[in-house]
Simulated assay, not measured.
Amino acid sequence: MVIYTNKVYENKKGYLYIPVIWREEFNIHCGLEIGIDCYHDSILVIDKSLKREYKQIISNKGYLTIPYALRQKLISNTFQIIIEQKDERIILAPK
């Protein structure tokens, strides 16, 4: 199932808060390394795959920092947050 949330990610801030409900469902916890990929300089895919180009650690409050080098590549500054439950990943798509 794909969930189109009413939440947005602002690229200027550089971090994404992953709510508890998603962290629990996807078994994401503090200290876990998460993979991030960028497609067409506009779509970010975030999941537990460590085969992704960028890797970051989840903070104790559920924050994930988007690497500066990756943020510089992005064409858009505002992204819609989409949840793909089946694949246990978060998609950030330009709004």
Results as ranks from 00 to 15, higher is better:
L50N: 10
R71C: 11
T78W: 00
N27Q: 15
L32F: 10
N27C: 06
Y63M: 07
S42N: 07
D47V: 09
N6V: 06
R23S: 02
H40Q: 15
K86D: 12
P67Y: 04
I82L: 06
G31L: 01
K73F: 05
C30P: 12
I90N: 05
R89F: 00
S49G: 11
K48R: 15
N60C: 15
I36R: 00
E33C: 08
M1A: 07
T65D: 11
T78H: 06
I46N: 05
L32A: 11
D87K: 13
G31C: 06
G31Y: 01
I66W: 01
S49Y: 00
I83H: 00
Q72L: 08
N77M: 04
E84H: 08
L92M: 12
F26M: 09
I83Y: 00
K61D: 04
K12R: 10
T5I: 07
Q56M: 06
N6R: 14
I46Q: 01
I75T: 10
E25I: 07
C30E: 14
Y68M: 04
L92S: 05
H29R: 11
M1F: 08
C30T: 10
R23E: 06
E24M: 14
I46G: 06
E24D: 09
E25R: 15
N6T: 02
I91V: 13
D47Q: 04
N6I: 11
N6K: 10
T5P: 09
G35H: 13
T78N: 09
R52A: 05
L50E: 12
Q72Y: 11
K7H: 11
K61P: 03
M1E: 08
E33N: 11
P67S: 02
F79P: 05
D87P: 06
Y68E: 14
T5C: 08
N27Y: 02
E84D: 15
I58P: 03
I82D: 05
I28S: 07
G62F: 00
I57R: 07
A93Y: 03
Y17V: 15
K51V: 00
L32D: 13
F79S: 01
K95D: 14
I18R: 04
Q56G: 10
L64V: 03
E33F: 10
A69N: 14
T5E: 10
I82S: 07
F26I: 09
R52P: 05
C30L: 12
L32Y: 11
R23C: 11
E10L: 14
Y39V: 12
Q72G: 11
Y4Q: 15
K73P: 05
P67V: 03
G31H: 04
Y9K: 05
K55S: 06
G62L: 07
N60A: 14
K55F: 01
G14D: 02
K12V: 08
S76W: 00
D47W: 02
R89P: 00
I3T: 08
R89E: 04
F79W: 01
Q80W: 01
K13Q: 13
R71L: 12
R52W: 03
S76C: 10
T65C: 12
D87S: 14
F79R: 01
Q56E: 15
E10K: 13
I66S: 00
S42A: 13
I90Q: 03
L70E: 03
K48A: 13
K95G: 15
W22V: 09
L16G: 01
I43W: 04
P19G: 14
C38S: 08
L44D: 02
C30G: 05
K51A: 13
Y68N: 08
